[in-house]
Design a protein around this nucleic acid. Structure first.
Lengths: 208, 208
DNA sequence: ACATTTGATTACCCATGGGTAATAAATCGA
DNA sequence: TCGATTTATTACCCATGGGTAATCAAATGT
């Protein structure tokens, strides 16, 4: 990887080449996502994406099969973040209420980032039917996490008995909405928003 | 308007003609809205809209200046419903909490109808800058109604002191989200949903 | 050195769909 | 009855933008 003088070798190893390629894919993804969120999917041309990366449109096809593939990859990148948060909380300690609050904070924070925003700002109908099916399954996973920890909280006594499904709709709706109104240049820091939301959304649920 | 025999005259008055024209405009609006919600704005062609009305595309231009005008008119029709609900509640009796609950119910019900759904399912970036400005002003009105009645409730003692802005974000988000998940052929009636939501969303706010 | 693979470019294709004449038919007012 | 207006139709135009073919250059590895 580097010579004795500390310089990076100009002859990259196969490993390095794989990383380069992957980095380029990520760069395309981030640029496209940025544009999609700025202007809306249908107003973004692949020429724009390429231009912002200082390449030309056909070069994109070395990394993605088409425009919808890019859109789908963006969405999946966002979902991975959510899935990681869920797995992390699942693996950690705490009763139902504690876990629910943690998820509200993590998911809410995600909604203030481009990766998270695309989960709800993209229109389902812009995906192919196959992509839609996979996305639908992913959404179910997230919803299931909310519901299961609410149910767990009722079970362990940390949450007052209620309908987990409806509670999850309220909480999910409030959180997803953050992706619509929150501005990075606004007066409220993401952390302040989600702390407030975690309190507010569990106030009516907690048993204490 | 009609003869002594009860038959409608085949010679419509100017008044009748104006009504006919207006009815046609409405028909275009309803059909377009239906298609926009089914397939998404960018996947709907004006030919489709025309076809469903048994006319041809250029005929639409007798009633609307273009595709975005139709989209805008749909949005405004939805907003009028919201504005009416707000005015009705404003004119009626009740303290802050009562009015807030009434708005939650009415706005939530609206979100289960096509007219209401378009308020949040349409993408702002598909409108012209001028249209966007007007829409932005309308949205502010709705948000202001939520905030003002929360503030009024705090003032009159029916609602516990809190930040009306954040409370309105939570409530608005949960309600807008209804437009995304509620299906008419689903298990929950619109009325059942909003009754549940009205309770749930004011449980943490009420002083009692 | 040299054939091979990879990655990028230029130049092009072409379906789509919003929008516009030019025109015809129905309706109106007088 | 007859010109004027309204409303609809047929036949187009054409900018847009996703996607492809042919080609070129550069790194690869044997």
């Amino acid at each position: 990887m580097s010579t004795a003088t500390g310089q990076v070798s100009p002859f990259p190893t196969p490993e390095r080449r794989r990383r380069d390629r992957s980095a380029k894919r990520e760069a395309i993804l981030d640029t496209a996502l940025e544009l999609f969120l700025e202007q809306g999917y249908h107003h973004v041309t692949l020429n724009q994406v390429a231009e912002r990366l200082h390449i030309t449109k056909p070069a994109l096809y070395n990394y993605f099969a088409g425009k919808t593939e890019i859109l789908f990859a963006c969405w999946m990148a966002g979902f991975e973040q959510a899935a990681e948060a869920i797995a992390r909380i699942e693996a950690g300690p705490g009763d139902g209420l504690t876990r629910l609050r943690a998820l509200i904070r993590d998911y809410g924070l995600l909604m203030t980032t481009p990766r998270g925003r695309c989960l709800i700002r993209f229109d389902d109908r812009d995906f192919t039917p196959e992509q839609r099916d996979r996305i639908s399954a992913c959404k179910k996973q997230v919803d299931a996490a909310f519901r299961s920890w609410i149910a767990a909280g009722i079970e362990d006594g940390s949450i007052r008995p209620c309908d987990p499904k409806m509670a999850a709709f309220v909480i999910g709706g409030a959180l997803n909405w953050i992706g619509q109104w929150h501005r990075d240049d606004g007066p409220m820091s993401p952390q302040a928003v989600v702390d407030d939301f975690a309190d507010r959304l569990t106030k009516g649920l907690a048993t204490d």
